[in-house]
Amino acid sequence: MVVLDALLALVLAGVAVATLNGLRRFRAVVLFVVFGLLLALIWARLGAVDLALAEAAIGAGVTGALLMAALDRLRRTESSRAVAGSAPSLWPVVLVALAAATVGMVAVLSLEPAGRPPVAFHLGASGVDHPVTAVLLAFRAWDTLLEVAVLVAAGVAVRAVGVVPSPPSTEAGPLQAGLLRLVVPVLVVLAVYLLWRGSHAPGGAFQAGALLAAAGVLVQLTRVPGPMDRPALWQRPAETIGLAVFTAAALITAALDVPLAWPEGWSKLWILTIEAGAAISIAVLLMRLFAGGAPVAAATSDPGKGRS
């Protein structure tokens, strides 16, 4: 099995060097998605299944979609096909990186192994059976709250930068609409399943939110105008509900006793409610990041291109 792992590591390093090398942006984006999927395999080999799910869905899938959307916008504004400034030769960088990695290895391996936090010992007190979910939403809930806040801040930033770009000229065909009918319900059911599964096995709010975001991106690509393009009443509440539920839970528990300490016996219910809200928000915020701007009413024809 070590041979398999060494081979996987070698292939990943090769794909990384190939991604960073070269001038064409499209090539780099495609190779980056390949990099993300191989990394998901490595997470599975290390035994971190939650990370494998998250890397495949968020790291490769959503980031790849975001890169493609940006690539499309860049292509539409730039007149020439030629791309991407200068690309210095990568070999000196590879050698420096190898040397630094060797030094780093020696340094890390010479450290005394630290004691593991006793998560398994306290798992019963958290209310869930899965250690990662327990850490995320019971023991270190404060960090997860801030993480949801970071996503909301990203949504606000993207809204502030400009409006959504005008939709592409090519229409979606019947095959895309058919795929939507098949895949979106499956994705919604899978997302709910992953959300519920997070309490006892790898899964949870982030992976579920990424699946819902994938469904949303498919709809955004197929329908013109997409759900993120026109202002609608559900958009802002959906984007903020995760943070709102989480903050409300924090304030309520602060009033009761200790903030973010879920009440005895009810912890699982609190955790699942917070995760459900977070999943919805994550999905809508990732869709907002993909759409790339604030929604604009139909009457306005100019999406803001060029100088005002």
């Binding site: 095959l175 895309q176 795929l179």
Partner: peptide, 15 residues
Amino acid sequence: LVMAAGTVSCHLLAR
């Protein structure tokens, strides 16, 4: 699901 995604991707690329 992989078949559905692969089929539609192939169609879109060819189109």
